[in-house]
Each structure stands twice: as C-alpha cells, then as structure tokens.
C-alpha cells in the first residue's frame, strides 16, 4: 500500500491555445465514446441484429408466396435486400443520434459543450460516431447477403459498403440536427417514428419505383432515402443472372420527368443533404441562451 502514500509533485497543466490538432483530438474522443458506449451495450447489438433478419426472412419469405409470378422467378428476399439494408442502417443511425438527447437528459452534453473546443468538433465527432456504429450494422447485413440470394462479389461489397456509409452519416446528421431542437427522449422517439416509417415506406425499399400513382411518384422522388436504396439495388442487380424484362420491371431506376437520374448524382444527393444538415446541426448547437 505504499503506492497510495506517494505524493506526486503537482503536475501543473497548461491547456494549450486552440489548435487544429486540439479540435481533431476532441472529434476523435467524442467519436470513440460512441463506439465504447455501443460495444458495451450487448442488448443493443442483439436487437440491431434481429430486425433485418425479421424483415428479410419473415416478411421476405412470407410475402413471396403472393408475389412469385410478378418477380419473374427472382426471390422477393433479393428484391427487398437493398431496402432492408437501408432500413437497418437508418434505424441504427437514428438510435445513435438519440444518444445526444440522452446526453442532454443525463447532463453529459453540458460537459462537452463547456469544453474549450468548437461546437462543430463535438457535432462532427457525434455524427461520425453514429455513422460508424450504423456502419457496423450495415456490414452485418452485407455479411448475410448470401442468404438473400445476393452474390458475394468484391464490387457489390465495396460499392454497397460505400453507399451505406454515406447513408449512415446523412441519417445521423439528420438525427443530430433534430436532437438540437427536440430535448426530451419521448418526443424524440415519437418524432423518429413519425418520420422514419414514412421515409422507409416511400423510398421504394418495398416496391419498384416506376408506374406508381402520380402522388406516390412525387412523394417517392422527394424522399432522400430513395436515392440511397436505388443505387444499392442497381449494384446488386448488376450482378444477378436475370432476364432484361425482369430487370426493367424490378429495377427501373429513378426518373425525373422521364430522365434517368445517374447513380453518381443519386449518391451526391445523399452526400449533399448530409452536409447541409451537418451545417444546420452545428449552427443549432453553437447557439447559446
């Protein structure tokens, strides 16, 4: 017990002036905290696993008894796969963003907000943390792709990984932006339910996006999730061995007034939306009373 008797000389700490390295350090620690929190939460890991399975295999297998004729021999699970991937990532990202509301309720947010770093560093760290956690979920769904009839192929894996990473980031910034204003967990959860379900259903995760009623077409085209689901589906369908007719009917691609929106533009839309919302979130958190 001699160790407790040791009186260390007073280590006089001088906190250095604000530097870029200091901001990066702050971003890194906020990001790391998200990962530590996620990895210590076994229950959350388990629930994040079960949901995609439920949608993909219960819904996918069940409904396929109705749809066999219209999918031209393609398993409904394969068709649903891109949508389910997007949904899984979206739910996890929103859940990560919700942690900022928890942090506020339990007071920890204050510790971060009084630190001598830019608010933007805190927000960016939080968004990257949420995106990373959501990406774990995405990787999981990519890993079970074989069970849904999606071939394991380097192009598919890398492109799908890239798109879902971007989606994870954008959805997290969306959630963080909301969390700046919505200060109670109950309200945040209610809002999430209210927004996430329509976003998911309108996105074309569950149906091809051509030949829809006009009102649904409009709603589908303004749903940002559409522009994440469609490229994933295109990448997957590029590697399926199916007839061109089935391809056109199941993977028609998003059109704006007859013009096919290129994949790159779709991905850019997701990225730009993420950056805009990140800007709004930073502005919201930089305000003081």
């Amino acid at each position: 017990m001699t160790s407790t008797e040791v009186r260390l000389p007073v280590a006089k700490v001088r906190v250095p002036v604000r530097t870029r390295a200091g901001e990066l350090r702050a971003i890194k620690i906020v990001w790391q905290r998200e990962l530590i929190r996620f990895s210590s939460d076994r229950l959350r890991m388990l629930t994040s696993l079960t949901q995609p399975f439920l949608f993909l295999f219960v819904l996918g297998s069940g409904l396929s008894r109705l749809t066999q004729a219209s999918t031209g021999g393609l398993s409904l699970r394969t068709f649903l796969y891109p949508g389910i991937l997007a949904m899984a990532v979206m739910f996890t990202a929103m859940f990560s963003a919700a942690s900022i509301v928890w942090d506020r309720e339990f007071g920890f947010l204050r510790e971060m907000l009084v630190a001598p770093v830019r608010r933007s560093s805190i927000v960016i760290g939080k968004c990257l943390g949420g995106a990373t956690v959501a990406t774990f979920q995405g990787i999981l769904v990519i890993a079970i792709g074989g069970l849904a009839g999606v071939p394991y192929n380097a192009t598919i894996i890398f492109s799908v990984f890239g798109i879902q990473l971007l989606l994870a980031f954008t959805i997290t910034t969306f959630g963080v932006m909301m969390a700046a204003r919505v200060k109670q967990m109950q309200s945040f959860m209610a809002l999430t339910q209210m927004l996430v379900m329509p976003l998911f259903f309108l996105s074309g995760a569950m149906f091809p996006v051509s030949h829809l009623p006009a009102w649904l077409t409009v709603l589908n085209r303004i749903d940002p999730l559409t522009y994440a689901v469609d490229p994933i589906r295109r990448v997957v369908f590029n590697h399926l061995d199916i007839s061109p007719a089935v391809r056109t009917s199941l993977d028609p691609g998003v059109t704006w007034g007859g013009w096919h929106v290129p994949t790159l533009l779709e991905v850019a839309i997701v990225a730009i939306m993420g950056l805009i919302m990140l800007g709004v979130a930073i502005a919201e958190f930089s305000k003081t009373e």
Partner: peptide, 23 residues
C-alpha cells in the same frame, strides 16, 4: 451531475483530458 454513468471514473477523466487538450 454531468458525468457519463456508462463509463468508468478513469474514462470520464480521460475524456475530459482529450476535450481540454491536456498534453
């Protein structure tokens, strides 16, 4: 309280050290 209850005491302090840029 403004501590993170899910983290250990040491982690809370290390997090603070990072945020404040302590050498």
């Amino acid at each position: 309280t403004t501590l993170d209850g899910y983290l250990t005491a040491e982690r809370n302090l290390r997090l603070h050290a990072e945020l404040y840029g302590i050498p």
